[in-house]
Amino acid sequence: MIRDTLAARAPAAVFAAIGPGRQADAERLFARRDMRRASTPRDASVLLVAGDIPAEASEALARVHDQIPPPRATVQWQGEDPDRIAARVAEALKDLRGTGTGEADRLPDEPPNEWKGIGPHGQGGKGMMGGTPYGRPMAMTGPDIRDGLQLDRYTARIGPFAPMLPPGLTLEVTLQGDVICDVSIDSPPFAQPADADAPDLCLARVLRLLGLDRAADRVLGGKRPGALWVRGAIPRGLGRIDGTDIRGRVAAWRKGEAAPLGPFDLPQLLTGAEWSEAMLILASLPPSALIRAARATEAA
């Protein structure tokens, strides 16, 4: 009984799909105590769609929706104040708990491509290896970018609503273990207003990626992060651009100062980094600089 009562009072686990112009609003919304941002759709009950999602990302949004376990609900956020949208999310969760019913799947439950029975082993490929069972390419061997040894390479598309990536960014990444050996940009991040570059928001993104959610919430509440050792958790020289690295940018943001960046090659910056390092690099890039770099790469 007590456990059920406490569960009913707990904030809804919300997965956010953030559209153009809404990154700053959404990040500040999730600093509230009555909101909890789910790290994956599987952990969520409510899908919060912030702003208007471009048509080219509608299928990706539907896939995210269908990954949320039923019963589930969608809340569209078009600009209401934070108190109102938090209340709407709470109402949606209350309805789900009360009725036990929610929204149906938006996409058919079938593999994204035909593969069964194709090839000599039925795995979708032409030879012993290869193929794309269930739409996920099988790993193929290739030379390691560090020492040339033959290791499995796995290629996957990530985005545009992956929580560790900026909203809208879709990457095609080839990994050997956890090392990125090749990366290309399928779609650039969604355009965001200038306030998405605010020092407190930039610092909070890095803190959240380091698992310091409480420190991030303190920053967004106008307080010091309370984690003086945070720079020590970041390798020296990582994400170096224009003579400054992530440590330098974090130090500037902790003082409330901007950390402007000049042009840089985004794929080159990520290639050779371990996955966790690459995500930290992306989190340390102000949205305006990241958008410019992604668009420049796409246009090249």
Rank of each mutant, 00 (worst) to 15 (best):
D34N: 10
P71W: 04
D105H: 15
A293E: 02
L169W: 02
C181I: 08
D81M: 08
S276N: 14
A139E: 01
R224V: 09
R214H: 11
G100Q: 02
E56I: 11
A162E: 07
V75P: 11
V179K: 09
V206S: 00
A12F: 03
A162C: 12
A293Q: 08
S288C: 06
L280S: 02
D217S: 14
L96I: 10
G102T: 14
G248N: 07
M138P: 07
R236G: 15
L201M: 07
D147G: 03
E110V: 13
A283I: 06
G124M: 04
G168A: 05
W253C: 07
E103P: 12
D4Q: 15
A7E: 13
P235A: 07
R9Q: 13
G272K: 14
A283S: 08
A198I: 05
P188N: 09
C181Y: 05
R292C: 04
A12C: 05
V49S: 00
A196N: 09
K94N: 13
T74D: 03
Q150V: 02
A73F: 02
R36I: 06
T244W: 06
A12H: 01
A60E: 11
R254C: 13
S184V: 13
L212S: 04
A283D: 09
E103N: 09
L107E: 05
S58W: 10
T155G: 08
R3C: 14
G159M: 07
V46Y: 02
I85L: 07
A251F: 03
P41S: 02
R208C: 00
L47S: 01
A26W: 00
A258I: 03
R157K: 15
V219E: 03
Q23G: 13
D195M: 11
P163L: 12
L6F: 05
Q192S: 15
V46E: 00
I180D: 05
I53R: 00
V173A: 12
P188M: 03
V75W: 01
Q76S: 10
L151C: 05
S58A: 15
A300N: 06
E298T: 13
L6R: 04
L282Q: 02
G168P: 00
A227R: 11
E172Y: 08
V173I: 15
